[in-house]
Design a protein around this nucleic acid. Structure first.
Ligand SMILES: [Zn+2]
Ligand SMILES: [Zn+2]
Ligand SMILES: [Zn+2]
Ligand SMILES: [Zn+2]
Lengths: 149, 149
DNA sequence: TATAAACCCTGGAGTTACTCCAGGGTCAAG
DNA sequence: CTTGACCCTGGAGTAACTCCAGGGTTTATA
C-alpha cells in the first residue's frame, strides 16, 4: 500500500484541476514530484497537503506571491508568525478598498439606471451620464510643450 | 485655428494615456484617425469625445465589449435604449456579486486575523485555518477509473 | 543654425493566474 | 488486443493594458 497518488488523484484530493498543479510546478510554487517509470508525476501526502493549502489560500484571495511567502514560512516552526498576520492584514485592507470602490460604483450605476425611464438612444440618461460634457473635451490650443499640428 | 489634436493632447483631453488610445485603435474600438505629413495621428472633437466616453465607461467598470456595443448604438438616435439599460443592469448585478463575494471573504479573513494573537509559526491560527485538515487529504486507494501506481 | 528636449511612430514583450488545446504516450479492463 | 481513461509536453489564448527599444519629427533654445 503506497501512499503516492497520480496528478488526477492529487487534483481531486486538493480540490484543484490537474492543470493548476502543473502550472504551480512550472512557476516553482511546488517542487517537481517524483515520477513513475511511465513518467507520471506521483504525489505523497505532504505534497497533497501543500496543494490543499495553496488552493485554500487562493480561494481566500491571496496572490500567488503571498502564498509563496507563506509556504516558505510554514516549515520554520519556531519563527514568529507576524509576517503571516501582516500579509493577511494587507490582503484584508485591499479587499476593503475593493469593496469601497465597488460600492461607490454600485451607487453611480444605480443612479444612472433609475434616471433612465426608457425611450430612444438620443434621450438615454445612461448614455448621457457616460458621455463627456462638451466643455470638458473642447480642445484648447494653450497646452505647452506639445507638438502643434 | 485647426481643432485637430495630437495623440498626447487627445490623451490629456480624454483623461487616458496615449498608449490606451493606440490600443483601442488596434482592437478596433476607435477608428484609425487621419495623420499629419510626419505620420502623427490627429484627432478631431468627435473622436476626442468618443475617447472620453470610453474612459468614463471603463471607469464605471464596463468591459471593452460592453463599451463597444454602447458605442455602436450611440449614432442610432431613434433606436430604443433598452439594450443600454440592460447592459447597465447586468453590470450592476455582477458588481453586486463581487461585493457579496468580497464581503464573505472579508469576514473570513477578519475572523482569522482576530483568532491569531501572535507567537510562532507552529501555532499560528491563520496558517492553521488555511491548511487542509488531515482527514481531507489522506489518500484513499478506492478511487475508480484512475491509473494505479 | 545647431542641437537638445519633448513628442511621436511601430512592433513586441510582459503582466495575472490560469485554461484549453493538439498530438502524442501509458495503463488497466474486457 | 483494443478501448477508454488517464497522463505527458509545449504552446496558444484570455482581459486590458503597460512598458520598452530603437527609431523619426517638431519645437525651443543657445
Ligand atoms: Zn523550523
Ligand atoms: Zn436609457
Ligand atoms: Zn440614427
Ligand atoms: Zn499568526
Amino acid at each position: 500500500m503506497n501512499e503516492r497518488q497520480t496528478i488526477g488523484q492529487a487534483a481531486t484530493a486538493s480540490g484543484m484541476p490537474a492543470d493548476n498543479i502543473r502550472y504551480y510546478e512550472k512557476i516553482g510554487l511546488v517542487a517537481k514530484p517524483s515520477r513513475t517509470e511511465g513518467n507520471y508525476r506521483t504525489y505523497g501526502p505532504n505534497e497533497v497537503r501543500r496543494l490543499g493549502f495553496i488552493r485554500r489560500a487562493r480561494e481566500l484571495g491571496f496572490s500567488i506571491e503571498q502564498v509563496r511567502e507563506m509556504l516558505e514560512m510554514t516549515p520554520h516552526h519556531e519563527q514568529d508568525c507576524g509576517r503571516v498576520d501582516q500579509l493577511t492584514h494587507e490582503h484584508l485592507l485591499s479587499i476593503d478598498r475593493k469593496i469601497a470602490d465597488l460600492t461607490a460604483l454600485r451607487h453611480e450605476l444605480e443612479a444612472m439606471l433609475t434616471s433612465c425611464h426608457g425611450g430612444t438612444v438620443r434621450d438615454c440618461r445612461i448614455l448621457e451620464a457616460i458621455a463627456p460634457s462638451k466643455s470638458a473635451v473642447t480642445p484648447h490650443r494653450h497646452a505647452v510643450g506639445q507638438a502643434k499640428i
